Computed example of a mutant assay.
Amino acid sequence: MASITIAGLRKSYRNTEILKSLDLSIKDGEFISFLGPSGCGKSTLLFCIAGLEEINDGSIRFDNREITELGPRERNIALVFQDYALYPHMTVRGNIAFPLQQQKVDQQTINKQVAWAAETLGLESLLDRLPSDLSGGQRQRVAVGRAIVRNPSVLLMDEPLSNLDASLRVRMRTEIRRLQRELKMTVIFVTHDQEEAMVLSDRIAVMKDGIVQQFAAPMTVYTDPANHFVAGFIGSPQMNFLPAGLSGYNNDLVLGVRPHDINPAKAAGDGVHFTGELAFVESAGPVHFLDVMVGGHLVKATCSDPSGLEPGSQITLKAPGHALRFFKSGSGARVHMSSQH
């Protein structure tokens, strides 16, 4: 296990700057996710930490020890990739044992570590099978077993669940989180899936264009987004964004409110009200989503019972004041309204 300190990290390819003077501090034993759209630099940052990419400037420290100039093997890290990268001619046992064999560890220790990894991941009955005889989830567990077998200081995972079907992804998320807690490992997990990041992480680094937009606990990122981009990227359905002037606020601001915080109004009270035409009712189990056109803008709201709500009818929606978020129209910077309205 190790803490990680990244200071002023820059990475460019020719004339294209990929990572722009990043600063991050990761605690020993934390589960951190790098989250963002394709091309934001999250995998590049992971590979810089792993030593697979050279950095142009800045420093990387493990437990306050400078490791920027060290190769991947000298950093005591383990990587799990999206495609598993298992050796097809080796059994599960051979794949898990391979890193220890490369380090010329004695056979008794190898047997002990392989048995421990197999037991931890529920692979005991599969040790003599080839990867071609395994399901996608089993292959992923073997890849994780190969990564943890030599007790790395940091486990780095690059979109490891993206090749799995939806139900298997959910099960593997639980397995990975359980494993991290049991082993108290420092884990960095790269994903473009916000749900994965929210469920798994102690903290999330939300990235865009090579810059960390916000680095905070999942619910802080969700309820207190740093800017317009973070607010729109986190949350499903996406946050509603409207000209603040529709609610009597400054016209230079954008008002953001999440669909779950907008509901049909039953009575007057605090907060803001929107009146528009109901376009569509979408049932999703216990929650029903309402698409409402308000001043030429589509607003998504929620309700528990859509009885009596007919498309084409007028509807008034209400959002409590505490659920409103405001952003500058141009820069997208967050504006706190305590001294505004």
Rank of each mutant, 00 (worst) to 15 (best):
Ala2Gln: 11
Ser167Cys: 08
Leu242Arg: 00
Cys303Glu: 12
Ile204Met: 11
Phe31Cys: 13
Ala301His: 05
Gly256Ser: 15
Thr223Glu: 09
Asn76Met: 10
Val272Pro: 00
Arg203Pro: 03
Arg10Gly: 14
Thr191Pro: 00
Leu46Val: 01
Thr174Trp: 11
Ala301Gln: 07
Leu134Ile: 09
Val254Phe: 11
Leu24Ser: 08
Pro311Ala: 00
Ser307Asp: 12
Arg171Phe: 14
Ile188Tyr: 05
Gly71Gln: 10
Ile204Ser: 03
Glu17Trp: 03
Arg171Gly: 05
Lys300Met: 13
Asp63Ser: 01
Leu290Lys: 07
Gln194His: 07
Ile176Glu: 15
Glu69Ser: 14
Glu119Phe: 13
Leu24Thr: 09
Gly41Glu: 04
Pro225Met: 13
Pro320Lys: 15
Ala197Glu: 07
Lys328Val: 10
Arg325Ser: 14
Arg150Thr: 06
Lys318Thr: 05
Val257Asp: 09
Ser331Gly: 03
Leu134Gly: 04
Thr316Asn: 06
Arg146Asp: 06
Val294Leu: 05
Gly39Ile: 14
Leu242Ala: 03
Pro311Leu: 00
Gly210Ala: 04
Ala268Phe: 03
Pro237Phe: 10
Thr191Met: 02
Gly321Pro: 08
Asp209Ser: 14
Glu53Ser: 03
Leu22Met: 03
Leu200Gly: 02
Phe327Arg: 00
Asn64Thr: 11
Ser25Arg: 10
Ser236Pro: 10
Ile188His: 02
Lys328Arg: 13
Asn240Pro: 00
Ser236Trp: 15
Gly210Thr: 04
Met337Asn: 12
Thr120Gly: 12
Pro88His: 06
His192Ser: 15
Val190Arg: 01
Met337Ser: 11
Lys300Thr: 12
